[in-house]
């Protein structure tokens, strides 16, 4: 098996798995019974989806700079997710945001 084929297969497998997690996050958002459970689905599944997608696409990157930028994008998305989950959950616990 050539290296290019291996990279292609890795990309397809990882990005496909990423899509599955995105779909799972959306399904959770639609199906879970209450606001807070839905927030679980969104926070965990989507960011895993993005991480797998970025990792899969990294195998197609022309150089290390692009790989580094992909990693940075995922880290920023994780920071945002961890913050938004807590803030929105807390706001929904108060009076106004329900």
């Amino acid at each position: 098996m050539t290296l290019d084929l291996l990279r292609l297969l890795l990309t397809i497998a990882l990005t496909g798995a990423g899509l599955v997690f995105y779909v799972a996050g959306t399904l959770g958002l639609l199906r879970f019974p209450d606001t807070f459970s839905r927030l679980h689905a969104l926070t965990k599944a989507d960011n895993l989806g993005l991480g797998l997608l970025a990792l899969g696409l990294a195998f197609q990157a022309p150089g290390w700079a692009e790989v580094a930028k992909l990693a940075l994008i995922w880290l920023l998305a994780l920071l945002a997710a961890g913050t938004v989950a807590q803030l929105v959950a807390r706001a929904a616990l108060g009076r106004g945001a329900r």
């Binding site: 965990k44 997710a81 807590q86």
Partner: peptide
């Protein structure tokens, strides 16, 4: 810790 718990299985922190 709250942010990390929110990404772990089954837990979600609200501050």
């Amino acid at each position: 810790l709250g942010g990390e718990l929110s990404l772990m299985p089954g837990t979600l922190a609200a501050g």
